[in-house]
């Protein structure tokens, strides 16, 4: 028994007497142990699925363990790239992105600048109001807007008819439907972006503004020459986020409100590839669609990250 109780002391003593401490012999060991759980998780949940997705995109398979995985080469990619709707979807994706930028960057920046001095109760109420759309579930947002925009009974059209204009078919007119969805997507995001900009603005040193005022700068000049350059990192961040995720953010509204129609006018890359890839568990279609999106938006992300690094590196 006594030996057992001695053991910890002896174990601790032994190496110290004979060799240098482990940490000195293998300086890489402790950091790798600390990193291991994170790296392991990354490998298991991100990299391995990515490799598997890549592999399966060359097969035709329905996920059933007893069914064979049939190698079909590039056929899955070929089928997707030959979809005649693909060109329209790619163009629409661009329209969604460009259309969203004013709503996720320009408008929130203007709102944040205009209301930067709102304080007290009024400020709190305003901040709550602008943030409300962000907290409503996307499907609920979609349904509410469907009611509001309904050409026969919707409130918006009641107002339009009230001033003597003909009803507008916001979601059924191929020329308008995409912009209606851009607006709804943007409406939901204005609060979030405004919050980011408001936070960025409050972190600006007030003395800069006071100095500018003393030098006789107008409010417009202060906004243009001091605020905007100083919140540039936030502008770039939201711009990049919009480019990378804009098409994805509109997905729910497309699915609930138009299903890509009328006449493919509201479909985008995500929605089209989801329609073909994910309606059944056709694993080849869906993994090929996933890889295509990964590559396209991966390239966009690369540019985005580079842009962000540059804007962060600016001297302040």
């Amino acid at each position: 028994m006594a030996n057992v109780l001695d053991l910890p002391a002896r174990l601790g003593a032994l190496p110290a007497r004979r060799r240098r401490p482990l940490a000195l012999r293998a300086p890489w060991l402790a950091p790798s142990l600390f990193l291991a759980p994170a790296l392991g998780t990354l490998a298991v949940w991100i990299y391995w699925p990515l490799v598997e997705t890549f592999r399966l995109s060359f097969y035709e398979w329905n996920l059933l363990p007893m069914a064979p995985q049939v190698f079909v080469g590039l056929e899955n990619y070929q089928r997707l790239l030959e979809l005649p709707e693909l060109r329209q979807a790619a163009w629409n994706t661009l329209l969604y992105t460009v259309g969203l930028l004013p709503l996720t960057v320009a408008l929130p920046l203007a709102v944040a600048l205009a209301t930067r001095d709102a304080r007290g109760r009024a400020g709190a109420i305003y901040r709550a109001l602008i943030f409300v759309p962000m907290m409503i579930a996307p499907v609920v947002v979609a349904v509410i807007w469907r009611w509001l925009l309904n050409p026969e009974h919707g409130v918006v059209n009641a107002i339009i008819r009230g001033v003597g204009l003909p009803a507008v078919r916001f979601l059924d007119d191929p020329g308008l439907a995409l912009w209606s969805i851009v607006f709804i997507t943007g409406w939901k995001l204005v609060g979030f972006s405004t919050l980011i900009f408001a936070a960025a603005l409050t972190s600006i040193d007030r003395s800069l503004i006071e100095a500018a005022r003393l030098d006789g700068a107008t409010e417009g000049q202060i906004a243009r020459l001091i605020y905007v350059p100083l919140v540039m990192p936030a502008i770039v961040l939201l711009g990049v986020l919009t480019v990378l995720h804009g098409a994805q953010w509109s997905f729910v509204y497309i699915n609930v409100l138009t299903r890509g129609g009328p006449l493919q006018s509201t479909t985008n890359l995500y929605y089209l590839l989801w329609e073909y890839g994910f309606s059944s568990f056709a694993i080849g279609w869906s993994t090929a669609a996933g890889m295509l999106l990964f590559v396209v938006f991966g390239i966009a992300a690369l540019f985005g990250v580079r842009l962000m690094n540059r804007s962060d590196a600016r001297p302040r």
Partner: peptide
Amino acid sequence: RLNPAEVSDT
């Protein structure tokens, strides 16, 4: 040319 989702309501 109705939105398919609105047909029954109409």
